[in-house]
C-alpha cells in the first residue's frame, strides 16, 4: 500500500514533464490508448470554447425576445425559437456557460473544504474524527437531490447559491474519500520521522500530506465534474436551480419548456442533446484521466 501510495505523484510528474517536452506525442498516445477518452476530451474542450466565446458564436443575444415565437428550425433560427421568440441555438450556447461556470466553481469551492475536513478528521483521529464522521453520515443519509433542494430553499434561487449548495454537498461527500486517502499516507514511515524531528502538525499536513493527496484530488475532481453539471441541470429542471431568464440546459427542459412540448418539441431536443453529450464526454474524459493518472482507482465505479 505504502509503495503504491508514493507511486501516484511521481507518475503525475512524469506525465507533466512529458507534456512539456513533447505534448503532441503524449496526446497521440492518449488518443490511441483511450479513443473514447479522447472523444470525451474533445467534447470537454468544445464545452470550454463554446462557453468562453458564447457572445461571439451565438447568432442572437440569449435573452432577446422577438415576435417570431415557437418557430420551428429555419435558416434564421437553426434550432427554432421558444415561446418568447428567443433563439434556441443561442440559448443552448449560453447554457454551456452556466454549466461550465457551475462545474468549475463547485470543483474549486467544494474540493478545498473537503480536503481540509478529510485531512483534519484523519490526522487528529479520536473524538474529532468520530464527530466529523457522524456529521458526514447524517448529511449522507439525505438523498443528494433532496438535500440540494433543501439548501436552495434556505438560500433562495440564484446562480451563486446553486454553486454554494453543490459545493457544500460535494465537500461533505468528498471529505470521506480525502480522509481515506490521508489515512493511507499516515501509515508511512516518513510521517513518523517528521513527528520525531519535531515538525508541527501544520507543517506535516502541508508538506507531507497535501502533496500526496493531490493526485487523488485531481482524479476525483475530473470524475465528479460531470456529476456536478448533471446536478445543476436536475435542480434547474425542478425549478430550484438557476432562475429564469438565465439560460440553463436543465432550466430549458423545466415546466416552461414542457408546457410547449407537443407544439414545439425542438425546444426540448437541443438542450437534452447538449446536456447528454456533455455529460457523456466529460464522464469518458474523467474515466480515461483516472486510468492514466491513478491506476489504483480503476474499477472503483
Amino acid at each position: 500500500m505504502a509503495a503504491e501510495q508514493s507511486l501516484a505523484p511521481t507518475q503525475v510528474r512524469r506525465m507533466d514533464t512529458g507534456a512539456v517536452t513533447s505534448a503532441a506525442a503524449s496526446v497521440r498516445k492518449f488518443v490511441r490508448r483511450k479513443p473514447l477518452g479522447a472523444f470525451g476530451g474533445a467534447v470537454t474542450v468544445l464545452l470550454v470554447l463554446v462557453a468562453v466565446f458564447a457572445d461571439l458564436i451565438a447568432p442572437y443575444p440569449a435573452l432577446q425576445h422577438s415576435a417570431a415565437t415557437l418557430q420551428g428550425p429555419s435558416a434564421d433560427h437553426w434550432l427554432g425559437t421558444d415561446q418568447f421568440g428567443r433563439d434556441i441555438l443561442s440559448r443552448v450556447i449560453h447554457g454551456a456557460r452556466v454549466s461550465l461556470f457551475v462545474g468549475v466553481g463547485v470543483t474549486l469551492l467544494g474540493t478545498i473544504p473537503a480536503l481540509l475536513l478529510g485531512l483534519a478528521s484523519a490526522y487528529f483521529g479520536g473524538w474529532v474524527d468520530y464527530l466529523v464522521q457522524r456529521l458526514v453520515d447524517a448529511f449522507q443519509s439525505v438523498p443528494y437531490l433532496i438535500m440540494l433542494i433543501a439548501i436552495m430553499v434556505v438560500l433562495g434561487p440564484s446562480l451563486t447559491n446553486v454553486i454554494v449548495a453543490l459545493s457544500f454537498r460535494r465537500a461533505i461527500v468528498e471529505s470521506r474519500v480525502m480522509r481515506g486517502a490521508t489515512m493511507g499516507i499516515l501509515n508511512n514511515v516518513y510521517i513518523e520521522a517528521a513527528h520525531a524531528t519535531g515538525a508541527t502538525n501544520t507543517r506535516i499536513m502541508l508538506r507531507h500530506l497535501v502533496p500526496n493527496i493531490m493526485p487523488t484530488l485531481i482524479v476525483l475532481g475530473s470524475i465528479g465534474f460531470a456529476g456536478v453539471i448533471l446536478a445543476e441541470a436536475s435542480l434547474s429542471f425542478l425549478g430550484y436551480g438557476v432562475p429564469p431568464p438565465t439560460p440553463s440546459w436543465g432550466g430549458m427542459l423545466a415546466a416552461d419548456g414542457r408546457a410547449y412540448m407537443f407544439a414545439a418539441p425542438w425546444m426540448l431536443i437541443a438542450p437534452t442533446l447538449a446536456l447528454s453529450v456533455t455529460v457523456f464526454g466529460v464522464n469518458m474524459f474523467g474515466d480515461a484521466l483516472r486510468d492514466v493518472l491513478d491506476p489504483r482507482l480503476r474499477g472503483s465505479h
Binding site: 436536475s234 429542471f237 407537443f262 418539441p265 426540448l268 447528454s276 455529460v279 457523456f280 464522464n283
Partner: peptide
Amino acid sequence: SVAILGLSVPNFALATAYVVFPAI
C-alpha cells in the same frame, strides 16, 4: 459504451423524451 451513455442521459431528459417522441 451503452452503459455510460445510460449514465449520461439525465433521467428527466429520458422521461421527457418518453412523453414527447411518441407524440411527434
